[in-house]
């Protein structure tokens, strides 16, 4: 493949991952979007979920991200999130416990449901990778 995407996954306090990729899938407020090289410039709001990246070496990695942004321009993709964790950094046990706690604290509350979504995203990311 001649073209590739230059991807940066950035959390508020660090650069989580950067490198070349063939394909990026992220979840926006409108649904999942897949981004291939030469995608039109785009700015999208992402929700708590999983980011899936196929690198140029043919490897796939997933990361759990909190709500944030996805910007695409000139084959540069940056995913911004206040918190992001690569699948291998996620403590599955802890995420499961967080999920239970969040669910127990009442799923109606905005904050609780946000916590539920975040924990679910982490679990999904960790399970997908293993």
């Amino acid at each position: 493949m001649a073209d590739s995407l230059r991807v940066e996954l950035v959390a508020a306090d660090r650069l989580v991952w950067s490198g070349e990729a063939q394909r990026v899938i992220a979840r926006t407020t409108e649904g999942d979007v897949g981004i291939l090289p030469n995608h039109a410039p785009m700015l999208a709001v992402t929700v708590d979920g999983v980011v899936d990246v196929l690198t140029t070496d043919g490897e796939t990695w997933v990361a759990a991200v909190d709500a944030g942004f996805l910007s695409v321009a000139h084959n540069r993709v940056s995913i911004l999130s206040e918190r992001a964790e690569m699948s291998h950094e996620i403590d599955l046990e802890k995420a499961r416990k967080d999920l239970e706690r969040a669910k127990a604290s009442g799923a109606n509350e905005d904050e609780a449901s946000e916590a539920v979504r975040q924990a679910e995203a982490r679990i999904r990311a960790a399970e997908r990778a293993s």
Partner: peptide, 20 residues
Amino acid sequence: LPLYEFEPSAAEVLDQLLPR
């Protein structure tokens, strides 16, 4: 000029972007 696609809308994106 690249024509940016905003999802869901430019206003919405800005709404999320600026506080951050």
